[in-house]
Amino acid sequence: MFVVPNWFIGYDALTEAIFAVVTLLVSLLAFKIFKLTKSNNSKLLGFGFLFIAFSYAILAIFNAGNCFNLHESFCEITKWDPVMWYYVQLYIHLILYLLGLVTLVYMTFKTKSPKLYSLLILISALPFMFSLNFPHVYFVLSSVLLAYIFAFYLGNFFKNPNLHTALIMVAFTFLFIADLTYIFTMKSAMSYVIYHFIELVAYILILFNLVTIIKK
């Protein structure tokens, strides 16, 4: 699915591990806030970022294994087809990431409707099941979901302009741009690097926001 430059192998796993840690931190803090406030939106934010953290963790582990040629040994021992093994991990990553984004989009609606949530999940899963070109479908779908989340945080910034709302708004702008960049340049090896770099900037901004909140 991805065209990866040789020199970037290993660095991709490292950046994905950073994304997993940052999203996990957001999730843990959201659950802590939920414990104190019993706010349903905090719980949803926690679960949304937890799904995303797991999706990045799986990708990081897979790419780290790729770096040390662990997959070949694993497939030799288990007699699994390496291509099948690759797609299983990729699907788990993509499904968890989309589930995270769907949960965040549902959170922006600020409503308590399991029907709406299940409908969003179903709509996101359908093209996945019936499309032969699932990498493109995945990026188009995640871009649409990220566009919704970005619009929400843009509105949140205008409603309450301060450093924290600005950081989150800019971070989601970068995540949206990263996805768009990848849709149009999927076959280029350099786009894989740019995609990771833009996402890294976004997650550094989110981490910076967390640090400024916790430090006070």
């Binding site: 959201a30 706010s39 959170m107 924290h164």
Partner: peptide, 15 residues
């Protein structure tokens, strides 16, 4: 004690 942190977190993530 954690009110300031709660408000800044909920504000920044639009909760």
């Amino acid at each position: 004690n954690k009110y300031k942190m709660i408000i800044e977190f909920t504000d920044s993530f639009g909760l």
